[in-house]
Simulated scan of single mutants.
Amino acid sequence: MADDNKPKKGQINIELDADVAQGIYSNLAIINHSQSEFVVDFVSIMPGVPKSKVKSRIVLTPQHAKRFLKALNENVSRFEKNHGPIKENNQPQMPINFGPTGEA
C-alpha cells in the first residue's frame, strides 16, 4: 500500500500552498511579448479608483503560452457546454498608463 503514494514514471507531484490556493482576483489581463517570452500581468481594477496595481505577473515561453491558450480554449468550451454561452459585455476602452515598455 505504501507504494501507492509514490509518483509513477512521467508523473509530476504538484503542491499547492494554502496562501496560493486563496487565489488573486483579477478583472484585467495585460499581455506583452518579446521574441523569447510572453508576460501576462493580472490587475484588479475597481470602479471609481483611478489607480490599480499589478497583482500577479506570469512569464511564459512562447511554446507554453500556446499550450496555455489551447487549454484555456478547451476549458471555456466545456464551461459553455455545461452553463451556456458566456456573454461578452461591450465595455468602453480604458486608457491604461502602464509605464515604460521594453523588450527583454
Results as ranks from 00 to 15, higher is better:
4 D>Y: 07
1 M>C: 09
76 V>E: 07
53 K>D: 12
85 P>M: 08
8 K>H: 14
7 P>E: 14
98 F>T: 06
23 G>T: 10
104 A>R: 08
21 A>S: 12
42 F>L: 06
39 V>P: 04
13 N>L: 14
76 V>F: 12
87 K>D: 13
1 M>L: 12
29 A>L: 04
99 G>R: 00
50 P>G: 15
55 K>I: 05
97 N>L: 00
20 V>S: 04
12 I>E: 13
80 E>S: 06
51 K>C: 14
70 K>T: 12
96 I>T: 01
43 V>E: 00
60 L>A: 02
77 S>D: 13
34 S>T: 14
47 P>F: 13
46 M>F: 11
72 L>F: 09
34 S>M: 03
40 V>T: 06
31 I>D: 01
80 E>F: 10
98 F>H: 00
73 N>D: 11
20 V>Y: 11
62 P>Q: 08
52 S>A: 15
88 E>S: 04
86 I>G: 04
70 K>W: 10
56 S>P: 00
91 Q>R: 09
74 E>M: 02
92 P>F: 08
24 I>W: 11
10 G>A: 02
8 K>Y: 15
7 P>V: 14
87 K>R: 07
94 M>C: 07
51 K>Y: 13
82 N>E: 15
86 I>R: 08
76 V>A: 02
46 M>S: 08
32 N>H: 02
77 S>V: 11
5 N>G: 01
59 V>A: 15
97 N>C: 02
77 S>C: 08
83 H>P: 05
50 P>R: 13
45 I>C: 02
63 Q>G: 09
6 K>D: 13
38 F>I: 12
89 N>Y: 09
41 D>N: 00
39 V>K: 01
3 D>W: 10
16 L>V: 11
101 T>P: 00
91 Q>G: 01
51 K>L: 14
66 K>I: 08
45 I>Y: 05
80 E>K: 03
56 S>G: 07
69 L>Q: 09
12 I>W: 10
50 P>Y: 12
18 A>W: 05
20 V>E: 10
13 N>E: 15
78 R>C: 01
84 G>N: 10
20 V>M: 10
101 T>R: 06
19 D>K: 01
29 A>I: 02
63 Q>E: 14
88 E>W: 09
36 S>E: 13
39 V>W: 03
72 L>G: 02
68 F>W: 04
23 G>R: 01
23 G>N: 03
58 I>S: 08
10 G>F: 13
45 I>V: 05
89 N>M: 09
94 M>Y: 02
17 D>R: 00
16 L>S: 08
30 I>Q: 04
48 G>S: 07
81 K>A: 02
32 N>W: 06
